[in-house]
């Protein structure tokens, strides 16, 4: 069964574009990545799924039911972690979490304490005394405490230190093993690559591609930044797999995809001052997609 089924979903805010004709499915038990730069429409899609906003046209189903019409019923089995978390300032963390739990017709107490323990969250502090990262932890606990079947994460890792990020990813993996489906929105490709089975790529409100993460990894782009000792002609980098080449005197940048040894042996023939190999940003990947389409 499709856990999420989005069908030509379109949302305009007045005249400004939110999303246009977005369609994709998320299958049961998968971790589905949803990537795109800021303002691409990730949050708009997610907020429509949660019936926080109403679609201009098109529809979306969750657990086979229309997400607007059956919203409250569907949301019993959804856990949501927004990109920015805000809670009632004057409440204690424990009270916020208990309030959250009170909406679900089940006993979430045990899970609540368990999660707070894993995330190292102090339950007795007031919300407005919490740092951003700690508020995020409250968000994680309140999103998971009712053991939802579908977990929707909207850029969840911002504000978490690396250790907490790892704990959080472990937690998500664990929920996934227990059978939860996960929709994970992010603009950090690396994160998505590590965690997800499939991804949808969105840009300017439109889905560009839905792809297996394995396929995406095969087209594994690296970004090279090199300072040479001598100036160099661009024919030197006429190697299969090099794209987006730019040469300014001794400074060279390009994207490379393919056998890493080929490019390394090519580079080893020259004296280098500096070499940086890094993950390309999402925009650079997108640029590549556009080049391919054009």
């Amino acid at each position: 069964m499709h856990i999420i089924e989005i069908n030509q979903l379109t949302k305009y805010y007045g005249k400004s574009r939110g999303i246009v004709d977005v369609s994709f499915n998320v299958e049961e038990g998968e971790i589905f990545g949803f990537i795109g730069p800021n303002g691409a429409g990730k949050s708009t899609t997610i907020r429509t799924l949660l019936a926080l906003i109403y679609p201009t046209s098109g529809s979306a189903k969750i657990f086979g039911k229309d997400c607007i019409q059956y919203g409250p019923e569907i949301r019993r089995e959804i856990g949501y972690l927004p990109s920015e978390v805000f809670y009632y300032d004057n409440m204690k963390v424990l009270d916020v979490l208990k309030y959250s739990a009170s909406f679900y017709n089940k006993d979430c107490k045990e899970r609540l304490y368990e999660l707070a323990d894993i995330m190292d969250l102090d339950l007795n502090r007031k919300v407005n005394d919490l740092s951003y990262g700690n508020k995020k932890k409250v968000g994680i606990v309140q999103g998971l405490l009712h053991s939802p079947k579908l977990i929707i994460l909207d850029e969840p890792t911002s504000g978490l230190d690396p250790l907490m990020q790892q704990k959080f990813f472990d937690l998500i993996h664990e929920e996934n093993k227990k059978g939860a489906t996960i929709l994970f929105s992010s603009h950090i490709l690396n994160e998505v690559q590590k965690l997800c089975h499939r991804v949808a790529i969105i840009k300017e409100g439109k889905i560009i591609k839905v792809e297996d993460i394995e396929t995406l990894k095969q087209s594994n782009y690296k970004k090279f930044r090199i300072d040479m000792t001598d100036t160099i002609t661009d024919t030197y980098f006429d190697v299969e797999g090099v794209t987006n080449l730019s040469i300014h005197d001794q400074h060279v940048t390009f994207l490379f995809s393919g056998d890493i040894n080929v490019i390394i042996s090519q580079l080893s023939q020259k004296r280098l001052k500096n070499l940086i190999v890094e993950e390309p940003t999402l925009d650079e990947i997108f640029m590549h997609y556009y080049v391919k389409e054009a």
């Binding site: 949660l50 019936a51 926080l52 919203g71 409250p72 019923e73 569907i74 949301r75 019993r76 959804i78 949501y80 927004p82 920015e84 805000f86 809670y87 009632y88 300032d89 959250s100 909406f103 679900y104 309140q142």
Partner: peptide, 14 residues
Amino acid sequence: RERTADFLLVKPIN
């Protein structure tokens, strides 16, 4: 105003 709508309105309540 207090930005808690994303908390309350995604709960199973209409």
